[in-house]
Amino acid sequence: MSDPNLEGEDFRRARRGRNIAIAVGLAVFVILVYVVTIVNMGSDVLHRPL
């Protein structure tokens, strides 16, 4: 919840920067989980029973 008294251009710019940083952080985490999963499976993923 933002304080309406603090709502100004600086405040909005800072909040936008924080939101972008959180979005980038989450995206990086998701990509990392995907990548380490693929790396850990290695080539074995091709030798599974169909």
Partner: peptide, 11 residues
């Protein structure tokens, strides 16, 4: 109290 809006650099 927060005197200025926190930027991502602060975090």
């Amino acid at each position: 109290s927060v005197r200025a809006p926190a930027r991502w650099q602060d975090f």
